[in-house]
């Protein structure tokens, strides 16, 4: 919209007021993160400003204490296995949903995405009772199964969204030229939906890597994850090591978010029909 001299004063005032308000809100949104960051480099023992000096001591403590490195390794392990399982299952499901027409399809779609809508504390408590009955509480398998259930909808949704713009004639063309179904999948379908699959898997990883409530209920100290370790630290007494751990957790999510945004932009470019103007 052009804001020429004809724009009434009141509207211009509202606009600049709105802009100032927006900047303030954006600062509010990112401020806590930028507070944790410098505090993790403090040379002191307390989480107060101004910092008495800069130091890497809390990162040294984080990366040398078996309590924290164990938690980080657990989180990475559970996150990676969850991502692989959820990505494979979710991509298959999205392909099936896209290719099939049957009466129960909306119901199946709803079933596959409901885990997102249910409060996570209910999922966690349900998982706790269920896994207690089948002796999976306090096991890696139990935690991974619960995390896959939580992450699967994100993969299904993301890959399904990519498939919306996918031309069904392309695999047909490949098949008519004599490609086997597997070859069609490998050389035509997967490369086309790869950005969606990748962002789905990023989503799955972050879901598992940041997940706290399920981990609180169904892990024993042996499978403690990074969020769980941070949580128990925060509920007792916040030491600067926790801020270092928080920064590690944060960096992983933010880097993955950037990857995801890049993938999203890429897939939007790929899906735009040839010749269409933006």
């Amino acid at each position: 919209m052009r804001s020429g001299s004809s724009t009434p004063l009141i509207e211009r005032l509202a606009l600049s007021g709105g802009r100032a308000f927006t900047y303030a809100v954006l600062v509010f949104l990112v401020a806590p993160i930028f507070v944790v960051f410098p505090l993790s480099f403090t040379a002191g023992q307390l989480l107060v400003f101004p910092l008495p000096g800069w130091s890497l001591q809390w990162y040294r403590e984080f990366f040398t204490s078996p309590l924290w490195t164990g938690a980080l390794l657990n989180s990475l392990f559970v996150g990676i296995v969850t991502t692989i399982v959820a990505t494979v299952l979710g991509t298959m499901a999205a392909l099936g949903l896209h290719g099939a027409r049957f009466r129960l399809k909306p119901f199946i779609m709803a079933l596959l995405v409901t885990p997102i809508a249910v409060p996570v504390v209910i999922i966690a408590v349900s998982a706790f009772y269920f896994f207690a009955a089948v002796n999976l509480v306090g096991t890696y398998i139990g935690l991974i199964l619960a995390h896959v259930a939580l992450a699967l909808p994100f993969v299904v949704i993301t890959v399904s969204a990519t498939l919306q713009g996918f031309d069904p004639n392309l695999p047909r063309a490949a098949a008519s030229l004599g490609a086997s179904p597997l070859r069609t999948l490998r050389t035509v379908t997967l490369p086309m939906i790869a950005p969606g699959v990748a962002s789905g898997s990023v989503f799955a990883f972050v879901t598992s890597f940041d997940e706290l409530v399920i981990a609180l209920f169904i892990t024993s100290p042996q499978q403690r994850t990074l969020p769980r370790q941070i949580f128990s630290g925060v509920s007792e007494n916040i030491s600067p090591t926790i801020t270092a751990a928080a920064v590690v957790l944060l960096m992983v999510s933010v880097v993955l978010m950037l990857v995801m945004e890049w993938l999203r932009a890429r897939s939007e470019r790929m899906r735009r029909p040839v010749g269409a103007e933006q």
Binding site: G90, G99, A100, V118, I122, F131, A133, V148, L152
Partner: peptide, 27 residues
């Protein structure tokens, strides 16, 4: 074709039923 597509769907549906719906229903 439909059977093939349903076979692709089946693992996720079974997984969700077993590790999400069933625990929730029991709870």
């Amino acid at each position: 074709h439909l059977i093939k597509m349903l076979a692709l769907l089946a693992p996720s549906v079974i997984f969700t039923a077993l590790f999400f719906v069933l625990p929730l229903a029991l709870f």
